[in-house]
């Protein structure tokens, strides 16, 4: 744990330093830039609330990827599952009208079903035809992208709008806002809590983790790895779908073109930096969200375009992951050297 913390913080600092060098090369002042960046994402109630709100889709897709990678299936379909979840929640919100107490859970459920359906498709292709989920989920991403684009351009198109989007969903389906804070954070925390509990305390989660580490051992130990595979795919799909539903219900209240943007891929990235750890996913999700939220403020104050953050994120991932590997090698080397010396004496 401590080793992870050290390598994580060191990696982020090195990455920020590399970012500073890039900025100096372009003639920007890194200190004012980083100042503006974190000023607009962390200092004050409203920036903090925005950062928290934006972190929800990142953390949920990150959680989806973490659980999937740690349990074996290489589910890279978060972008598609997020879109399908958002589409399902939007359709529910357009055609249903119930009191909020029923409406909000129902829409959240619909979003999860949408995501789980899309990942379930990949899981079925794997179970029935032995098709690698790594490629099928990627292809399903593209298909979901075009499918939702079609849906918001024709069947549920808002006729008063100029670009492809749906009308707003029923106000009963909007997530309530408490002060500055959007309640999507609460939904996310509940989902995180459930997943954390299942994954690290329940037998099911134990079986998933063991399967992820060594599927042969898990099978010989009596785990039903095929059944677990399908469950993990469905659960992770539902998580990504939930992220999509929350984006619609907390943000624009409608399905806009390019809604998912990079949330889901960023989620995969977060899972990768966090080495598939759940707590790590939560922390890195918050950190990446603060970067993305502050990006607009940074663009406002300094001349650095907000796209710079995308570059910075990728640098952080590479440096942290490479740093972790190198640190491990170094530590292992020292340990083995010490052992060798003990042996000699």
């Amino acid at each position: 744990m401590q080793r992870k913390l050290i390598s994580g913080i060191a990696g982020i600092l090195i990455a920020l330093f590399i970012g500073a060098i890039i900025m100096i090369a372009q003639g920007f002042n890194p200190l004012t830039t980083y100042g503006a960046l974190f000023n607009y994402s962390l200092i004050g109630l409203f920036p903090l609330a925005t950062t928290l709100r934006n972190s929800v889709p990142l953390i949920l897709t990150g959680l989806s990827a973490s659980v999937a990678f740690a349990s074996g299936p290489v589910n890279l379909g978060q972008p598609g599952q997020l879109l399908m979840g958002a589409l399902f929640a939007t359709i529910g919100g357009l055609y249903l009208d119930l009191p909020p107490v029923l409406m909000i859970p129902l829409l959240l459920l619909l979003a999860m079903i949408g995501g789980a359906m899309w990942s379930g498709l990949a899981a079925l292709m794997r179970r029935w035809f032995n098709m690698d989920e790594f490629i099928t989920t990627l292809m399903l991403n593209m298909i979901a992208d075009f499918l939702t684009y079609w849906a918001i351009s024709y069947p549920i198109f808002d006729k008063t709008a100029f670009s492809p989007m749906t009308p707003q969903i029923s106000t009963n389906g909007w997530l309530p806002v408490i002060g500055e804070f959007n309640t999507n954070v609460i939904v996310m925390l509940v989902a995180f809590g459930v997943i954390y509990f299942v994954f690290s305390r329940w037998t099911a989660g134990y079986e998933w983790r063991i399967t992820g580490q060594n599927s042969i051992f898990a099978r010989l130990g009596g785990c039903k790895i095929d059944k677990n595979y399908v469950t993990v795919m469905l659960v992770t799909g539902a998580l990504a779908g939930l992220a999509g539903g929350l984006v619609v219900m907390a943000g624009p209240h409608r399905f806009l073109k390019g809604l998912g943007a990079n949330y889901a891929w960023d989620g995969v990235m977060i899972a990768v930096v966090a080495n598939n750890g759940l707590i790590g996913t939560l922390l890195y999700g918050l950190f990446f969200s603060s970067l993305q939220t502050g990006a607009l403020g940074m663009e406002l104050i300094t001349a650095v375009p907000s796209e710079f953050i995308q570059v910075l994120q990728a640098v952080i991932v590479l440096v942290v992951v490479a740093g972790r590997g190198t640190l491990d090698i170094l530590i292992n080397k020292t340990i083995s050297r010490r052992k060798a010396r003990e042996h000699a004496t």
Partner: peptide, 30 residues
């Protein structure tokens, strides 16, 4: 990263793809 520092190839690939998207968008703007 992948050959010299022995970082996981899958991770490097994902980060590199996102880096390409980010940096080309950034440079396009810049």
């Amino acid at each position: 990263f992948a050959v010299k520092l022995k970082t996981d190839e899958f991770v490097t690939g994902i980060a590199l793809n996102l880096f390409a998207v980010g940096s080309t968008t950034y440079l396009l703007r810049q």
